[in-house]
């Protein structure tokens, strides 16, 4: 690897920019490409472009062959994060499960009685209002934002910030009725239909979840789907990347 390539890779990682290092295994030529920035892929062969996209989505490095040449694709994705707004009951199993799945979990709740170390041992807790907290946390393309409070004073500013960010998943707990009212408020606040459609509400896959832990499962399943099967990307499975 060229020192200049490594330096650029370090800058990309600091900027939380999903990056793939493509190395021609015959000529040793190398270049960094950015799967979410199509212009950086424009001159690659279609098979290589598809492999880069699939590898990035699946978080799986590997070799792709095209036109008799072999390319090694090394995937450098930013860490996965989940920002949970509302230190409520469901947040307890959700924080533990999300950590197991590989997310750095941050819980935001300005209500000091909720966000306590006793209720969330070992989890990063932020007691600021969500708009301040999310400005600071700056959700990126590998961040999921889930609001759980049911309280518009807390959820709405969090959703506003999430919709202004490139977060790959935005979800909001609440019944259909609650969600309809929420969408109305966001429309009044100036979010267009496309932005509002990014919110998964009611949150989670419809699997009949009842208990807080089951609801956490349904949320994590939906977050996983958004991560691994982004719209227009096919199934994004490891098999596609191979």
């Amino acid at each position: 690897m060229k020192a200049a390539t490594l330096a650029q890779l370090q800058r990309d990682r600091a900027a939380k920019r999903p990056t793939v290092l493509v190395t021609d295994l015959d000529s040793n030529a190398e270049r960094l490409v950015y799967p979410r920035e199509p212009a950086t892929l424009a001159d690659l062969a279609p098979a290589v472009v598809a492999a880069v996209a699939a590898a990035a989505v699946a978080d799986k490095s590997g070799v792709v062959e095209d036109g008799g040449r072999r390319y090694f694709l090394n995937v450098y994705n930013p860490p996965l994060r989940m920002i949970v707004v509302g230190a409520v009951h469901i947040a307890q199993p959700l924080a533990r499960m999300a950590a197991l799945v590989g997310y750095e979990v941050v819980i935001v709740d300005p209500r000091r009685a909720f966000a306590t170390e006793e209720r969330f041992p070992g989890v990063t807790l932020i007691g600021d209002w969500p708009d301040d907290a999310l400005t600071e946390l700056a959700p990126d393309v590998r961040t999921a934002v889930v609001t759980l409070t049911h309280d518009p004073k807390i959820d709405d500013p969090a959703l506003s910030m999430a919709l202004k960010s490139p977060a790959f998943y935005v979800g909001a707990l609440g019944s259909r009725k609650t969600h309809a009212a929420r969408l109305k408020r966001l429309e009044m606040a100036g979010f267009d239909a496309e932005a509002r459609a990014r919110i998964n509400g009611p949150v989670g896959l419809a699997i009949g979840a009842r208990s807080p832990a089951e609801i956490a499962v349904s949320i994590l399943a939906q977050v996983t789907q958004a991560l691994r099967q982004p719209v227009g990307m096919g199934s994004g499975t490891a098999a596609d990347a191979a």
Partner: peptide, 30 residues
């Protein structure tokens, strides 16, 4: 990071990367 730091300090450095695996292997590709 360490590779970059060594390089910065003027040390010659090589990088090894798992490129392909077959069967069970303890460390993933990459």
């Amino acid at each position: 990071e360490q590779a970059a730091a060594w390089r910065e300090a003027g040390k010659p450095v090589a990088l090894a990367t798992v490129v392909q695996t077959w069967g069970s292997s303890p460390r993933p590709v990459g």
